Simulated assay, not measured.
Amino acid sequence: MNKFVLASIVTAAFAMPAAAADYKIMAPASPGGGWDQTARAMQTSMQDEKIAGNVQVVNVPGAGGTIGLAQFVNQAKGDPTQLIVGGYVMVGAILTNKSPVTLDQVTPIARLTGEYEALVVPAKSDIKDMAGLVEKLKADPGSVSWGGGSAGGTDHITAGLIAKAVGVDPTKVNYIAFSGGGEALAAILGGQVTAGISGYGEFESQIKAGELRLIGISSDEKIDGIDAPTFKEAGVDVSIQNWRMIAAAPGLSDEQKAAVTADIEKMATSAAWTKILADKGWANTFLAGDAFTAQLKKDTEATSAILKDIGLVK
């Protein structure tokens, strides 16, 4: 081979774009819930925008994400192609489950979204509004069952904060935890619980179909397009936002972390991701780098204080 042909081959090789990475994203919950929806939204966005080659989603449910987290920490070490979805719920579950594995053992990449909590009852319920629910709760706290996600998660914390705000002992809240959004939704629709709490997006289609009655939303101010009062407007001084994050495997080099972060930043500013946020009613709360690591530490400390306050952690 002459030197001109060799030079041409070398030049062409350097001119070729690097192949997009493949990723495996763990949703540490059953299909249908917020983490699963987040992972699949990432899958769609990263593939549609050619940010990644093949993106696979795996579900590992149980214990507020701590079973999946333990598996991820033990099996993904040093692998930059593996990611895990987490968030506020996982922070609480780590504390309430006394998990031996914590978020200190993964590589935080970015906070992605925020979503307010929706409080619903079945359409056939005799509870018409927040005042009706509060009346029942004050009369007999145990008679009001709340269906939502994992123990110690955002849904559970919200129920406890509502009870505390109206003068009911939050430790008497009759909370029934489900491992996935699909299971919780079935129980709420079937009238197996008095009320349901989750992100608005998980109830939206059933609310619009008239199968569920939305009696409150946990935002500070009324949200355009959502026909319900805030908890505060309904006389319950509580506001809370669930946030979701993406983390990478433990033991990554600075270069590997930077490459993963760059891909996630591309996704978070892409047209596909922006459309999904709008369609699902998720707020864009993107925060990456050292700022996110610092915020995660603050959120963990604040969640610990809330869980102690409502009797879920001693």
Score class of each variant (00 low, 15 high):
287 L>C: 09
115 E>G: 12
126 D>N: 04
184 A>K: 14
297 K>Q: 14
17 P>H: 08
236 V>I: 12
24 K>C: 02
121 V>P: 02
33 G>F: 03
53 G>K: 04
111 R>A: 07
27 A>V: 11
197 I>L: 15
225 G>E: 06
75 Q>C: 03
119 L>E: 02
200 Y>M: 10
167 G>M: 11
258 A>Q: 09
247 A>D: 15
263 D>I: 09
90 M>Q: 15
163 A>S: 11
16 M>H: 01
211 E>N: 01
249 A>R: 00
107 T>H: 06
183 E>H: 08
284 N>D: 14
300 T>I: 10
201 G>T: 06
28 P>M: 06
112 L>Q: 12
205 S>P: 01
185 L>Q: 01
239 S>I: 04
43 Q>K: 13
180 G>H: 14
294 A>Y: 00
200 Y>Q: 13
244 R>D: 12
196 G>S: 12
230 T>D: 10
33 G>V: 03
24 K>T: 04
145 S>E: 15
100 P>E: 07
90 M>I: 15
53 G>N: 11
36 D>A: 13
151 A>K: 15
130 M>S: 07
128 K>W: 02
158 T>Y: 04
223 I>Q: 15
270 S>C: 05
74 N>L: 05
112 L>H: 09
201 G>C: 09
234 A>Q: 11
234 A>M: 10
290 D>A: 10
284 N>W: 05
197 I>K: 05
105 Q>P: 09
278 A>L: 00
172 K>H: 07
10 V>Q: 07
92 G>M: 10
239 S>V: 06
9 I>R: 08
296 L>H: 02
78 G>T: 03
149 G>A: 12
164 K>W: 12
11 T>N: 07
226 I>T: 02
282 W>E: 11
242 N>P: 09
31 P>G: 03
130 M>D: 07
228 A>R: 03
67 I>P: 03
289 G>Q: 00
58 V>C: 00
62 G>D: 07
220 D>I: 12
55 V>A: 04
